[in-house]
Design a protein around this nucleic acid. Sequence first.
DNA 1: TTGTGCAGCGATCTATAT
DNA 2: ATATAGATCGCTGCACAA
Length: 722
Amino acid sequence: MKSKRAALNGSGNNSAEHSGIHFQGQNSFNIATVVQNPIISPFALENPESYSCTLDPASQNATTTNQESWPFNIIQCDKNANVLPASNSSTPNDVLDSTPTVGDSEACPSYTENQNIPTVINTTKPAPSVIMHSSRVSSVIMHGNAVTGGTATNGIGWNHSRTIVSPEREETYQGNNVEATQSKSTSEDEQTDKYRAGETYPERREVTQPATSYKKNKSVIREGNKTETYIAKPALPGTLVNSGIAPLCQITVKIGSEALVKRQISGSSLFFRRNGKPRHSESKLEKARQVSDEDKKERSSNRLRKSECIQMEEMCDDASDQDVSDKPWRPYYNYKPKKKSKHFKKFRKLKKKKKHSRSRDLEDDFIDVENIDEVNVVDTKSSTGHAEDQEDGQEKPLETEDFKDHEKTDKVEMITAQWQMDSKPFFCELCQKSFRNSSTLKLHMRCHTGEKPYPCKTCGKCFSFPGNLNKHERIHQTVKHFKCQYCSKSFMLHETLKKHERIHTREKTYDCQFCSQQFLYLCTKKNHEQKHLAEQSVKGFVCFHCSKVCKTAAALGMHQKKHYLKGLKNKDHKDFSPSTAEIGSWSNVASSSSKESNMIEERSSLNVPESFPPSFDDCEAPLLSFNNSVTEVSPQNVNAASLVENVNEIGESDGHFLTPAPPPTGLNSTMLMEAPRGWKHWKTRQYNLEESMNTDHSSLKESTKTFTELKTMTSFETPFIP
DNA sequence: TTGTGCAGCGATCTATAT
DNA sequence: ATATAGATCGCTGCACAA
Ligand SMILES: [Zn+2]
Ligand SMILES: [Zn+2]
Ligand SMILES: [Zn+2]
Ligand SMILES: [Zn+2]
């Protein structure tokens, strides 16, 4: 059995393939993907047979094109079939109980090029995930709340002039996932059996209209043949199936080609957003909540039990979780956002200059907004420690001012928001990403729609982006065009060659945070670091200065206060002077610790180098913590710990004591040394924390860089190599 | 069993063309 | 302003060696 590389983002959201789901990147089309989620379609509550469903006339003229698209079902319903009872409980349980589980992948035939997928029309029990209404009076299907056509809003509550695009485009796909929201009824079983038996699928249809550009903003209700489209889309494929958080769905209401309302029924959309700036008006959130509540009432799914719903509610109860709901809509497994674009940097620079000319003190508040991509405003590591200004390559000095974090955060938010508004005015409503122009946004929407208009001429595999097709088509060439200039190896793709050549050039390697090893591949590095983390599960409160281990944080505080006082005494005013915040921080720890100054001076005899804190296995207090606040381990935490560690080393290398730096405020003044022993465990925690903090991985990268710089400066000679 | 490197792909960024 | 191509990054799966 082969070992599998640990997934890097650890979210479970990336488990599309793990769970046998192949929305993207695979030709296989796993229908179970959609079926798996009981919440996925409120429509499933409805008795589909009660509708008179006809094929959308447009779709009848549709041509079959690409085979890999989002598995929407599209049904056009008569107007009089529009009104849906809010609590129509007709056979919901049946529906759900018969819902195939994720593991039913074998029941879901792989979709291949020559196969046809049944459209919804061909099934006897259509349970659409997309419904097209001819009605002029729109209503949101589940609860009948009207979205009045005449006063159409964008449903978002924003009043700016951004372009908001809903996932479905002018081209809508004729559903091929009949089973998507349909119960795994006998008919479905029959069908899947048929498919397995090798019978051809009914032809899959696609509604293809001339690709028109997205209308900018403003939902204009066209008179005449207006079509309202309700779309319920599965959320992220494979979302946390195992964790009990079911993938959810999203409802988009389209009138004509205008996306007017999107209701995202996803994890935390089941719950109120506490603070403002909602993307949906409160009433709509309320509606969404009602929907979910009804769902919860009416569904006693085997896979999503009520308790799980409650659990979800609890999970999202915290304000910090609010935006978690946005995450599942990031295309492709919740990818880490790419690096901040140069435009953003330019923007920031401009801002800085403006500020500088206006007021000096604002300028002094250095804000590293590099990290604050999109919604990440929690990680304000810039407030302390070293922050690298990537743009100039200049390293910012240690921040010693007593900042008010929230002010900075606000500034960052402002800057980021303003930048997005100014520089990226094209907004994807589904994932809240912004883009610089409509083309980019259009392209991006393919991630949501699954549109893949670029088929490989050789194998027929379709791609969303021409560049990816080009890359792909090279694999059909047997010739490896790209030769390594250092060895004789050749590669199909230039990018692969470049990656390979890093072996020789040692360029762009990934440094282990804990030792001096470098790795060519990020995943390798992370796996390696995990090893450190696992072994470094130090339980106890470690003094970074002398490696003593204290049983409690208070004890450590007491101990380190000694260091601090000593340092003050010996300090010959180099350039270090602790901030008041810092002193306060340490004093607080110390003062609360008078009772518990039972320091443990025992040093582990494990293979821990002298400079590394000893482990303390039987210590009850698990975390190294400032201010007695505790959080779970995360890459940020680890980096923070490392950061402090190295700051200490700076001080020591200079021959004088340096008080440990305060923890980065972005970590809520918390850092710790404990890591779960298992990688998977760690991953999970990492993900959860990141999600709850509404951060992304970019902060990790930034922190790592900072740390790497420190490492270089301080010549981290004694790596911890277990 | 574990670690490492490669293949391949999705998605985004950036420069350039229209 | 928009569209496009190429570059790039991040990710997973797989093969293979230790
Ligand atoms: Zn989007
Ligand atoms: Zn091909
Ligand atoms: Zn080579
Ligand atoms: Zn290491």
